[in-house]
């Protein structure tokens, strides 16, 4: 039961220790097994296949980098990658700004606070597909915003409404991500804000700091852990999201998950290997970016004297 007791150099204690170790392992084993077998297995399989290992199709040229070569050699891949990263980055940044502003407002005292604490979590509770349906309803050329524009006499034909959906600017996709993820980031930041209390801000205010200084020099460094963890999760999700770009995207070139899905559903099954190379590329790109982000954050933390 107690491992924290100092280990004594007697044989009996070592045996007991070994038994505790064993029980710890037993308790950790189930989640370990599921994650290693499913998650790890899927990753390993994807990498093997993208390198030409698919004996069930009669293809086994492992290790074969030609699938990556073909993929990375085409300009459409880079266009797709650019679009994927563009949607993911813009929506994460927008959601972060809106989320921090909302969290800062939520720590204040105001009459409808209880209502807002329910309200802001609503998008968190419902699937992305609902957000997409709402985007179709609001943002399409015949949609609600276009009707409102006509009502106020700004346009007199649906075609005059600026096209928001199905373009490569992707404002429809970004709107859905922001709508869905602002609550997530708000939740994370608000949680940290509640934890740190207001003492440091008050101290800074008493010492004569302006509101801007207080935010950037006192509040922001303290909420950074929440900011980093929530933006990491949002960014990774956005890079791998399929449904929003599939429905609201501008068509060819598609984002990488849609490209992978198309390869995978192609009648020519050898293209599945190309699809796997796409999948592995998504993972690689996301991994490199997120690792860099996390490393930069860790360095910042160390510089701030936090471990």
């Amino acid at each position: 039961m107690s491992v924290s007791s100092p280990p004594a150099p007697s044989a009996r204690l070592t045996a007991r220790e070994r038994r505790t170790r064993f029980w710890q392992m037993v308790q950790l084993m189930p989640i370990m097994a599921i994650l290693v077998l499913l998650f790890g297995g899927a990753l390993v399989l994807a990498i093997l296949q993208s390198l030409g290992f698919a004996p069930w199709f009669g293809v086994n040229t492992f290790p074969d980098f030609s699938y990556f070569g073909a993929l990375w050699g085409s300009s459409t891949f880079w266009a797709s990658l650019g679009l994927t990263l563009y949607y993911a980055t813009v929506s994460t940044v927008l959601a972060l700004i809106l989320g921090i502003l909302l969290a800062l407002a939520l720590v204040k005292t105001f009459p409808s606070k209880t209502f807002y604490k329910y309200l802001y979590k609503l998008p968190l509770m419902i699937p992305y597909t609902v957000g997409i349906a709402l985007a179709v309803l609001m943002l399409s050329n015949g949609g609600m915003l276009s009707r409102l524009a006509a009502f106020f006499g700004m346009i007199d034909d649906p075609s005059q409404f600026p096209q928001i959906l199905k373009t490569h600017y992707g404002w429809g996709i970004i709107a859905v991500y922001v709508w869905k993820q602002t609550p997530f980031i708000t939740l994370a930041v608000y949680a940290v804000l509640l934890g740190i209390g207001r003492e440091t801000e008050e101290a800074a205010a008493i010492l004569g700091a302006s509101r801007r200084t207080i935010f950037f020099r006192v509040t922001l460094p303290q909420i950074l852990p929440g900011v980093v963890s929530s933006t990491l999760i949002c960014f990774a999700f956005n890079v791998g999201a399929f449904e929003a770009p599939f429905i609201l995207g501008g068509g060819f070139p598609d984002t990488l998950p849609v490209v992978a899905w198309r390869y995978f559903n192609d009648a020519d099954y050898t293209l599945q290997l190309q699809g796997m190379a796409t999948v592995v590329s998504i993972g690689l790109v996301a991994g490199v970016i997120l690792f860099g982000y996390l490393a930069a954050y860790r360095r910042y933390e160390r510089r701030m004297g936090r471990n």
């Binding site: 370990m32 994650l35 499913l38 990753l43 399989l45 890079v239 791998g240 998950p257 998504i282 991994g287």
Partner: peptide
């Protein structure tokens, strides 16, 4: 181990989904 536990949150879902489907 804790880092490994957080990995599923930051590996894009499309990558996992398609590879899992093959499996």
């Amino acid at each position: 181990f804790e880092f490994f536990l957080s990995l599923p949150l930051i590996v894009p879902e499309a990558a996992i989904g398609i590879a899992l489907l093959m499996m």
